[in-house]
Design a protein around this nucleic acid. Structure first.
Lengths: 110, 110
DNA sequence: ATATAATATATCGACCATCTACTTATGTCA
DNA sequence: TGACATAAGTAGATGGTCGATATATTATAT
């Protein structure tokens, strides 16, 4: 099933921060890992990811370092900062609150 | 906790259709019921709801009828059509797929 | 030999959905 | 009198995603 793009809005930053929790990664790698970990549900587009990475870097949640990989275009690895780790915890909490409320409404909650 | 507005994007249409599943309702009533059923998590703004209702009506998912309630502005009740009911089932499936994928990523899924 | 796909990062304009702020109008309570 | 709840609505701003496009190298297939 293909999910509507607007459903993803607001979750992408959380997903990216979550991916970086388990170690430094570069953009292309995040797209692949996210697709794998979500069973093909999330197909992050490069036009979404790269601007997002830049904005997360500007906010100080992630830091970039480059790997000189010979002649090819160097990989830009991203590292989760302490501030980013706090932001991740907050966003994760927020998402669980949102999902909980959605379930309550969908289950015909009080 | 206040959730980010962009998290709600893509869920509002589903929520509105869901509310109408249990009976015809008017706009203001939906805002209230949604707030109640979500334990104050969802605060649908009128600037979001009314245009959304109009677009759902145009797509044939809901139908409006007016209640003449004396001198005050008449209430516009909305009714879920058969087409809307099918759309609701689809959107609900889609959301569960999305939420499932989110959980898998958040639980550090393989 | 040549074309295509995969790897890898990036920008730009279009699009869509929500929000804030504002408008109109009545009834109620202090 | 003034504020708040009820009730529906519009306009403009904002923010996030996408499609298209660009660039460059390597691997695979024809």
């Amino acid at each position: 099933m293909t999910i509507d793009k607007s459903l993803l809005a607001g979750s992408t930053a959380l997903l990216v921060l979550k991916l970086l929790e388990s170690g430094d990664k570069y953009g292309y790698q995040m797209v692949e890992e996210l697709r794998r970990r979500s069973d093909q549900t999330f197909e992050l587009k490069s036009g979404t990811l790269y601007p997002l990475l830049h904005s997360l870097e500007q906010k100080g949640y992630i830091e970039a370092w480059e790997e000189d990989v010979g002649t090819a275009r160097p990989r830009r690895y991203y590292h989760l900062t302490d501030s980013g780790r706090r932001q991740l915890a907050e966003k994760e909490d927020e998402w669980r609150t949102y999902a909980g409320a959605m379930f309550r409404v969908l289950e015909g909650g009080a």
